[in-house]
Amino acid sequence: MTQKPAAFVAIILGCAVVLALAPLILPPFYVRVGQLMLYSAGLAVAWTILGGFAGYASFGHAAFIGVGAFAAGLVEERLTGLPPALLLPIGMLVGGLACAILSAAVAYPILRLRGTFFAIAMLGVCHVCAELNNNIDVLQGSLGLNFPAVAPAAWDPAVFFYELYLAAGVVVFLIAWQIQRSRFGAGLLSIREDEDTARMLGVPTERYKRIAFVASAVLTGLLGVIYAHSLGYITTDSVYRDDTNLSLIVYSLLGGMGTLFGPVIGAFMLVFITQVVLARLLDFHLFATGLLLVLLVLAAPGGVLGLVKSWKLRRRAAATAPAE
């Protein structure tokens, strides 16, 4: 990154303020779409800390959404006496902690796998969590779990959760940005490019991967806790979704794999397309979504940022060619 850090943070916070004011003029439907965009973008950036920076593409991050959400919900259910303003922070703490423990526990063995095998193993982890959650009665996965209404009475819950997602999204984004520009981030990049060489050159690859994995999982879990509160009632099927697992990869591919802005752009675009453009298709929307994926892979394998980059290169080539 060539920008000055202070300027960069200022720009991001400026954008955030503009976005925060948006619900004042947006109709309620677009506030909901905005919620979903910010939530998806947050997830996509959290995913990219591991999948984009370190090149360990997880196919099972919905596990952390689910574990975070259910851990928070089960604890909050036992604390009904407390004011709602306290419940959400407690829930997030619990959810984040649960994800930290789970990810730390599986990190060591599972990060020995690479490429597709890592992706598949994460899918396995996600399904094991989902099945256990569904089949152990105290975890209430199949009967469903209610979440307390945490929005202050004066606020429209839709706007409240919009702002909450926005705040969480900005935090996730800034954390990812800090990671990217740090020595740690450079280490992750070296792992993505050539892990064995990186290790030979003295990069503590194991430790770096594990930290990235846990960070990514905890941030995902926190977003999952907010998501569950915004729905108010969840079953296993609401959070452990294979289409979420897949969407997280699609966001990065659509925007640009391994970049910081790519996942955000990808998430915004895909949510807009599926929720606004394709929304009215009654028995056609699966087909349209599938077609979109196919076209994406065939036409823009580098994502939107990849297209922009190649366009810039071509223009530069065109500009320099006549001078020679």
């Binding site: 597709t116 897949l246 990869i249 699966l286 599938g290 994926l293 892979v297």
Partner: peptide, 21 residues
């Protein structure tokens, strides 16, 4: 990338599932 081809087949699966319906 293996991810690209995987997504491609997923897209096709969605389209065909809808067609089968």
């Amino acid at each position: 990338s293996p991810l690209g081809s995987m997504l491609l087949t997923f897209g096709v699966a969605l389209m065909l599932q809808n067609t089968m319906i």
